[in-house]
Each structure stands twice: as structure tokens, then as C-alpha cells.
Design a protein around this nucleic acid. Structure first.
Lengths: 116, 116
DNA sequence: GCATATACTTACAAAAATGTAAGTCATGGG
DNA sequence: CCCATGACTTACATTTTTGTAAGTATATGC
């Protein structure tokens, strides 16, 4: 045997299944400040590609963490916004930001990112 | 162009670079309760393989999030423990657990995992 | 009537993560 | 002598994730 036992799945794993991965926490963190359109998110997260952004947004939408609103204009406009469930992730996202700020030296001051 | 712009790296990304991924948050969460040996962690996280557990523990050690102590016995015994830096991740891990508990219905009651 | 803008989608390719299974090491016990 | 134990390591295969680049749609302005 190489797995060490049978099954479980603790609460942390549940959370990770919803907001885990490379992009989701970052996307959600930016959305804490309010609705954003696709291109805004892309600009806020320079390292993400269109494809990844689309894929991750779709998954978050399926999980009911965000909503997607299409405005039937030309050129199209699509806005993404946290649902209440999505907003309930705020404590996690904020503590992640705080830890990162501390780790990089700074006191939890203002905006390298949304939210001072 | 397919990336949407140039560069950044916000505080959340920094945190993810240290404790992101499928296994690290779970490992760290279990270690919140105190030192554990390799086989204990394996039992606590049934879905992880020996190989993944070793790899992730090594990375956490390199990041100075945990310490690794080898007791020169036969058969060998190795214990892992959070450093102070590792302990500083507690707020993140605890809020992740809380969210998972809520999401799965329960009120934040007792131990599906370490920490009630 | 042609380019422009936005928010994608699609096909293909490369890279990264993870799994599987076997082997290693040292010693005490039978 | 042989086996068991605990914590690995190694080689290889598979799966999953991510990237690249091109294509789509449609109304508007030039």
C-alpha cells in the first residue's frame, strides 16, 4: 500500500474544493471591492490568461460564489460580482492578504491590491 | 496578445506561494494541534500518498513553515512541527475550516478534523 | 465595407502535478 | 538468516493544469 489509509475529507478540504487553486483566491480577492468586468479582472491579475480567467470564473459561477451579468451591448460587457456566499469568504481572503503583507515586510498598510 | 497586461503580484499571491496547493493547507491545519510524525499525518490525510506527503513537507520545511526532527532510532521516527512563522498561518487555516463547516451545514461544532 | 472593441471559444501543445510500485536503510526479534 | 518496521527515494506512467494562438460574434464609427 502507498496511500496511508481510507477516506475522510475535513472542513479545510471542502473550502479548498470551492476556492482552491492558483487563480480563484486572487480573483475573489479583487471582487471583494465590488463588481468588475472581465477586462478589469484581467488587468488586475496580469499573469492570468483569458482562457484561465474564463475557466475559473465559470467554476466560481457554478459554485454560486459569483454571478455573471451580460449586458447586451456592442461590444459586449460582462460583469462579475460576489454572491452573499462569495462574500462569506472574505475572512479567509483578508487573512491571506494580511499574512502576505506581513511576510513581505510591510505593516498592513495600503493598496498593493484592493482593500487597504 | 492573450495575457491582459504586465506584472504585479499582490499579497494574496505571496501567501499562496507559501501555503497554496492541494496538500499544504491540510497538512498545516493538522499540525496546528501540535507535532506529528510522518505516519500520523498520513493517517490524518487518507488521500495523500507517501510521495506527495514527503514532497509537500519538504517544501514547507524549506519555507521555514515547519521543522523536521529525526530521532535516530530503528525503525526511524520523524516529527514535524510548525515554526512560529507556521503558526502565524493559523487565522487563515481556522477561517478555512470554519467556512467549510458552515458550507457543509453544521454549525461550527466539534472535530471532523483537529480543532473543534 | 472595413476595422474596432469585448468577451469569449476552440484546437492543439507543453508543462506541472500526482499516482504506482518497487527499492533502500538499519536494527532488533525469532 | 530472515523478516518486520518507518520514513523515505527512485523511476516511470498518467492525469491535470495551463499556455498559445487563432477564430467568432455584432453593432458602431470612419
Amino acid at each position: 500500500m502507498h496511500k496511508l489509509n481510507g477516506k475522510s475529507g475535513c472542513a479545510v478540504e471542502v473550502t479548498l474544493s470551492v476556492m482552491g487553486g492558483t487563480w480563484k483566491p486572487i480573483i475573489l480577492f479583487h471582487l471583494l471591492r465590488g463588481r468588475m468586468r472581465f477586462s478589469d479582472l484581467g488587468r488586475a491579475i496580469p499573469s492570468v490568461t483569458q482562457r484561465m480567467l474564463t475557466l475559473q470564473l465559470r467554476e466560481l459561477e457554478e459554485a454560486a460564489i459569483i454571478t455573471r451579468t451580460v449586458y447586451p451591448e456592442v461590444p459586449p460587457r460582462v460583469e462579475y460580482e460576489l454572491t452573499p456566499l462569495g462574500h462569506s469568504l472574505e475572512p479567509i481572503l483578508v487573512s491571506m492578504r494580511d499574512w502576505g503583507l506581513n511576510y513581505t515586510g510591510a505593516a498592513p498598510v495600503a493598496e498593493p491590491c484592493p482593500l487597504a
